[in-house]
Amino acid sequence: MKRLLDEIITKAGDIILGKEQVLRLAITCVLARGHLLIEDLPGVGKTTLAHLLGKLLGMQYQRIQFTSDMLPADIIGVSIYDREQESFHFHPGPIFSQLVLADEINRATPKAQSALLEAMEERQVTTDGETRKLPHPFFVIATQNPSYQIGTFPLPESQLDRFLMRVQIGYPDTASERRLLAGRERREMLESITPCIDMQQLISIQNQVDDIFVSDALLDYCQALLEFSRTSPRFHHGLSPRAGLALLRNARAWALLEGRDKVLPEDIQAVLTATVGHRLHSTSDTGVDEGDQLAHHLLESVPIT
């Protein structure tokens, strides 16, 4: 099992250079059955990462490029009148796919965004009074540009909360960048990648995540983190119980990725920033996203007992 997961990470590391931590987090998120939000500047490899995950995990995937003139029907699909059969026929949209790459999600209007986000939460869509189930597993990787860029509609907090994790990729280090520049075109490399696992394997690994043991001592630590976020004056509001659940779920997946059968405080710490960064706001709301700094502050302030 660990070997298999390590192989995925090694393969992914060949395409996205020097970002093992981000790759691990992304895979953790998939294993924890959560949706992933990748947020960074254009050109650091957001889309590549999304493609890579789809390829490696053997999922059938579709990409939706979000634009400001997009409508919900462009995502969900539309019923069109079929003259020959004299009835409406539903043409499923790109969301009917195991892995959906929602590119630049914050370029779309809130209306289009919410169509996607509702599907993410319910794992089904309703059009023309008919409810249609989405495939299983269903997994959304959304990318977004930092909110200070022009032409963006920032996601509301309640919708950000639906992403189990948010990762930021960041610039590569010098050596990695050198290799990247000297190497082949990434797009070509992506084409040649073969899946490491199939759908059944992925589902079984996801089920194993639930079996990772969480001790009382760890729950104490987890609760101390939540408590601190609720009482410290630096946080505008504390972490919700849902955030606590997300934290534990990610920590379990991370522990599995590390080849452990139990969660350690280190696992919590490893996923903390990615899990709570997009759920935290500073009391001095300056418009700049300080979520990751706050998560770091949280990590530094709560001792492990």
Binding site: P265, E266, S301, P303, I304
Partner: peptide, 8 residues
């Protein structure tokens, strides 16, 4: 360090 886990 008091925020350091056992493995670290």
């Amino acid at each position: 360090k008091d925020i350091e886990g056992p493995l670290d």
